[in-house]
Amino acid sequence: MTPTAGVVAVQGNVAEHVRAIERAGAANGVDVTVHEIRGSGTVPDCDLLALPGGESTTISRLIHEAGIAPEIRAHVEAGKPLLATCAGLIVASRDAADPRVETLDLLDVRVERNAFGRQRDSFEADLDVAGLDESFPAVFIRAPAIGEGETDGEGDGDAGGPETLARWDGRPVAVRQGPIVATAFHPELTGDPRLHALAFFES
């Protein structure tokens, strides 16, 4: 079977996610077709969906205006995989602690925007991620973090609640809940397809 993937492309780092999905598919022997999505009508055809990083205020505004938001909700409700990164994590969350972002309430966590500071505090580091054998090169750009106590079901996969896949400086920065994998960092920036593979081809 040839799965169809979509990358929500209203704003942000889109082309890199397209390539990462193609690489992750190839690494798993799957030939995947990837669409860039800027309007409604395409998400329902997608088996896999990525919600990239960019500016969460801009992305949340445009996905609601373009009618993509309810389609993303339906995608997740149907149990189909979603990878949400950085601003995508903020938009997918229950609560962004900021009225400027209208969240989708798909991932049951509260997030803090710009939790690690401004761009001068942005960083890269090698990160241990549950489910990956070796550390992952993670790039944090004005990155959010997931609130403490939001991922208490850590490791036991209980009742579909969010479980922590990675922490940085004690704060959860990668989580899984049902069909959703979400990261505060950018797995698409380094060319390492393992996180896309984990989200889309190994569940």
């Binding site: 492309a9 209203v10 704003q11 942000g12 780092n13 889109v14 082309a15 890199e16 990083g53 960019g54 500016e55 801009t58 950085c86 601003a87 761009q119 001068r120 505090d121 942005s122 960083f123 890269e124 790039v139 750009i141 004005r142 950018h186 920036l189 380094t190």
Partner: peptide, 17 residues
Amino acid sequence: RGTDLVKRGFARMQKGG
């Protein structure tokens, strides 16, 4: 901090904006 990847990565997040 301040590596080419982190700097160029910031610029990439502005795309389509």
